[in-house]
Write a protein that binds this DNA or RNA. Sequence first.
DNA 1: CCCCTTGGTTACTTTGAGGTAATCGATTAC
DNA 2: GTAATCGATTACCTCAAAGTAACCAAGGGG
Lengths: 137, 137
Amino acid sequence: MTDVMDKTVNPNAAELPADVLNQDCPSRTVLRHLTDRWTPMIVTVLAPGQPVRFTELRRTVQGVSPKVLTETLRSMERDGLVTRRVTPSVPPRVDYLLTDLGASTVEPLAALRRWAEANVGEVQRNRRRYDREQAEG
Amino acid sequence: MTDVMDKTVNPNAAELPADVLNQDCPSRTVLRHLTDRWTPMIVTVLAPGQPVRFTELRRTVQGVSPKVLTETLRSMERDGLVTRRVTPSVPPRVDYLLTDLGASTVEPLAALRRWAEANVGEVQRNRRRYDREQAEG
DNA sequence: CCCCTTGGTTACTTTGAGGTAATCGATTAC
DNA sequence: GTAATCGATTACCTCAAAGTAACCAAGGGG
């Protein structure tokens, strides 16, 4: 996010087979952006395809600050996941929408979101059990 | 990861419909753990189903420090994603393997990994174009 | 005249995830 | 006896991500 200028760690890895397990593979930075704190939620909101305004995004993605929302959207724009559309009215209107590339992240990210929502109960039970067992010995 | 003791933000949200967009929904912590820096890679390595030793994990997931690998595995164990199996030999042998719950994350996380690896080229081109356009004005 | 709006930006501070280096215990190999 | 092994743990440090608060322009509504 702050790495608006991050360079490819391995410049001569031009188009070799990508592998996130490889320390120097640039696909790692791609995976990290995809899993940025707010990215899955933003993609969820933009998934239907209608352009969404900054303010509406801010309301829907509960808890995100304007600064971080701007940063995350910029990073997504830079990676080619979203398009930023400005209407220079007063007050200004700015819409965001997924590019084709961005749309192709919807399925994987939605699957992740669904997993979290479907299994939150079991995970919480596991955590309680683990903590109880640790407390005992 | 440091939140080994994190409490549910909203204690009376016992088993309501989960929604990651909701600030107080515990599914958010689940999504965050799933997208922890090393979790997708660890799940990738454990996906085949064979138990994997700590040291092998350390070698395969390039760049992870022993401290952070331990923390991440503990967190995954607490959430019920992996089982830790100790053989008290000398030197000690510790294997990790996915639980059924952990195995159910393989598909979604592998999809994410595949996306990153398949699209790293296009993302890098987009970044270069964006940076060039910013440089011009 | 003042305040409201939108979509930010800026400066500053805080947090916490992650990294580094040293150490451990118990045993076998050299 | 010294080194190596394994799976950590501990203390400490760093730095990027995230949060907070103030502010901005350019008008419209009251």
